[in-house]
Simulated assay, not measured.
Amino acid sequence: MKKIIGAVMLVVAAVCSSSAQKTTATYKLGDIVSDFKLKNVDGTMRGLVTDAGREKGYIVIFTCNHCPYAKAYEQRIMDLDKNFRQSGYPVVAINSNDPKEAPEDSFEKMAERAKEKNYTFPYLFDESQAIAKKFGAVRTPQVFLLNRNKQGKLELVYTGAIDNNWEDAAKAHRHYVEEALTDLSENLKPATAETKAIGCTIKWKK
């Protein structure tokens, strides 16, 4: 009887473990990304399909207020939205930092920053940090480029850095996100689909 009970417990443990792994699985290149709803700095709940599916995709960027790398890339993020929104790839910025660990990244400070800099894109607060974990985001800034496939689903086609020089935009000679978007405009998969994101680590809740 003890052997039977032990065997049953092992099976249950295996099922629970498998379930947990599925729950915590992060997106990989080629995966279909599900919509989500997070609080935008204007107080509304915002996701990826609020524009009735007219977008060809989204430039999802995990960023924040306080990180020196995020600050260095702020204008470049604004330029990405300005340059590619009309062609169907708007920016969606997400802050997943715990305000207790980084007070400058509180929702109130986010709203102030967005107003001060006149962001033209949503700046969402991932308070539970569930979306960052689902995407597998670990740094700020970190890009996840989504493209609407032939079935109308949003597919992850590029992840990583914006370009190859965080300190000086003028000295960057590889513009990874722009290169990926150019490939997509020619109905090609991005030649460079993954790079290493350079930035501060996301400040996780303790």
Rank of each mutant, 00 (worst) to 15 (best):
N164E: 05
L48P: 00
E108A: 14
S106Y: 04
A93S: 10
Q151W: 10
D31E: 07
D163W: 00
K22V: 09
H175S: 11
K134C: 07
E186Y: 10
I162S: 01
T192C: 13
R54E: 14
V8G: 08
S19H: 12
S106N: 07
H173R: 11
N118P: 02
V8R: 10
I5Y: 12
S34Q: 15
K115H: 08
V60Y: 00
A13F: 14
V91Y: 00
H175N: 14
R46L: 09
N164G: 06
L184G: 02
Q86W: 10
N40V: 03
E112Q: 12
Q86P: 07
V11C: 13
L181H: 02
A20T: 13
P141H: 00
N164F: 00
K56V: 07
N83F: 09
V138C: 15
S185Q: 15
G152D: 04
E101V: 15
L29Q: 03
E178M: 10
K206D: 13
S106R: 02
C200H: 03
Y58A: 06
F135T: 00
E167G: 14
L48K: 03
Q75I: 15
F62N: 00
V60Q: 02
D42F: 05
I59N: 01
A191G: 10
S185T: 09
E127Q: 12
R113I: 01
M45N: 11
K115V: 04
E186K: 12
Y89M: 03
Q86A: 14
E155Y: 07
L184R: 01
I61W: 01
V60F: 01
M78E: 15
A132F: 03
Y73E: 08
R85Q: 11
A7R: 09
L80D: 02
E194S: 12
L188M: 15
R54Q: 08
L10E: 08
G53K: 05
K196N: 10
M9L: 15
K3L: 11
C16P: 06
N65E: 04
T192K: 14
D81I: 02
E112Y: 13
Q142I: 05
K205S: 15
P68K: 09
Q75L: 13
A137M: 06
A193P: 05
A72D: 08
K115A: 13
G136E: 05
N65I: 03
D51S: 11
A72L: 14
T140Y: 01
A111V: 08
D98P: 05
K171F: 08
D163E: 07
T120G: 11
E194Y: 10
R85L: 15
G57C: 02
E127A: 11
N95S: 13
Y69M: 06
A172H: 03
A137N: 04
F62H: 02
G88R: 03
A132R: 00
P122S: 05
I59M: 03
P141L: 00
A93F: 01
M1I: 12
K150M: 14
E112L: 12
